[in-house]
Structure formats: C-alpha cells, structure tokens
C-alpha cells in the first residue's frame, strides 16, 4: 500500500511539473515549492547526521577535545549574519582558502595539467599511441594525432590576446574557432541526449509504474 501511495504522489508531482509546458499555474508552483521544501529538510538532516554528529558532537562526547578548534572556526562562519561582527568570518574563510589552494594547486598539476599535456605531445604521423583496442580502429586512425595537435595549438592561439588577431595569428585563431565550435556542438548534442533521457525516464515511470498497474487493477 505504501508503495502505491508513493507512486501516486510521484506521478501527481511529475504531471504538475509537466503542466508548466503549457503555462505557469498553481499546480506547478505547488510542486516546485514541495521540491524546495523537501530538499531543504533533507539537507538539514544530512548536515546534522553526516557533518555535525560524527565530526563534532560524537568526538566531543568521547573527549577528543582537539575538534573544538574546527568547531570554533565553523561557529565563526555564522557571524556573517551579523553585519557588525561579520569580519570574524574572514578567519575561517582564510583557513579554508589556504588549505584548498595548497591541495588543489599540487593535485591539479599532478592529476590534470601534466597528464593532459603529456597526451598532447604526440607524433604527428603514425597511429595514435593512446589506444590500442581492436574493436574499432577509429581511435587508431593515423589522422587522430594530427587533429589533436592542430586543435590544441590553434585553440591556444585563439585564447592568446597579447597580439591582435591579424595575419598568421588571425588565421590560426579562426581555425581554433572551428575546433571550439565543434566542441560546443558535441557538448550541445550530448546535453540534448541527456534531457531527452530524463523525459524518457519520467514517461517510462508514468506508463510502467503508474498507468499500467492502474489499468490492470481496473480491468481485473
């Protein structure tokens, strides 16, 4: 019974949200507000259960007094609500920014920038060194390396603004724009695919989990 009620609520809220396709209406507004309210309540519960309890309250109850320091820093963040003492929140922000920067700078170089640069340093001719999969030979096509090299260089030239985009630099930048547009096109195509997938998921739910069982229960 609980599951049936759940399915009816989900189906009702889905249809309320879909009603926006026609025009804004009170049913859509109701569903939107329910979503915001439920999300906020869920976030509050998770913040308490997964942040404050295991990381602050429980260690304090077990007399691990060191957690008082991050606890005080966390409490200092709350001073942002009061204009007179808002400056106090800059200290914990400074700590967060410092720690995050230290971590990110090193890790991005090690885990992102260097491997990606390495992958661009390819021989112009010959098969790609990145893949050797026998299923399709698309990845192994000799032109791939050339495309990657030309695409990377021309795109970098496009983002070089210290000289006017005229003559050789202008021409190279124009080639770079073509690569950028192809990347935008691929991203847009994938985005359309994702949005259609979401629509299909909802319609699949409405038909298989809501309408078909309803139809079966009415006919039997």
């Amino acid at each position: 019974m609980g599951q049936i009620i759940g399915v009816w609520i989900a189906a009702g809220l889905t249809l309320m949200i879909f009603s926006f396709l026609y025009k804004d209406n009170p049913f859509y507004k109701f569903a939107e507000h329910v979503y915001v309210g439920v999300s906020a309540a869920y976030t509050c519960f998770y913040t308490w259960d997964y942040f404050l309890m295991p990381k602050l309250i429980n260690p304090l109850l077990q007399h691990h007094w060191l957690v008082i320091i991050p606890g005080i820093f966390g409490a200092m963040m709350l001073t942002r609500w009061f204009p007179r003492s808002a400056w106090v929140s800059r200290w914990p922000i400074a700590v967060s920014v410092g720690v995050a920067s230290g971590l990110v700078v090193v890790q991005y170089m090690q885990g992102f920038v260097i491997p990606q640069i390495q992958n661009t340093l390819l021989p112009i001719a010959g098969p790609a060194v990145t893949f050797n999969n026998p299923i399709t030979n698309l990845w192994n096509h000799p032109l791939n390396n050339l495309i990657i090299i030309v695409g990377t260089v021309t795109t970098l030239v496009y983002f070089y603004f210290s000289k006017k985009h005229k003559g050789f630099i202008g021409g190279t930048a124009k080639v770079g724009i073509i690569f950028i547009m192809v990347a935008f096109g691929a991203s847009f195509g994938y985005t359309v695919m994702a949005r259609i997938s979401l629509l299909i998921g909802r319609i699949h739910f409405l038909i298989n989990d809501w309408l078909l069982p309803l139809f079966r229960s009415l006919t039997h």
């Binding site: 990606q116 992958n119 990145t130 893949f131 990347a183 991203s187 994938y190 985005t191 997938s197």
Partner: peptide
C-alpha cells in the same frame, strides 16, 4: 550523464 560525458573524454584519451 550525457551532459558530463564530453568533459570526461580527455581523461579516457589520456
């Protein structure tokens, strides 16, 4: 998700 897929291809290529 399909939205994220193009951003993940460089990791696969490398």
């Amino acid at each position: 998700t399909a939205v994220v897929t193009p951003d993940a291809y460089p990791y696969l290529a490398a």
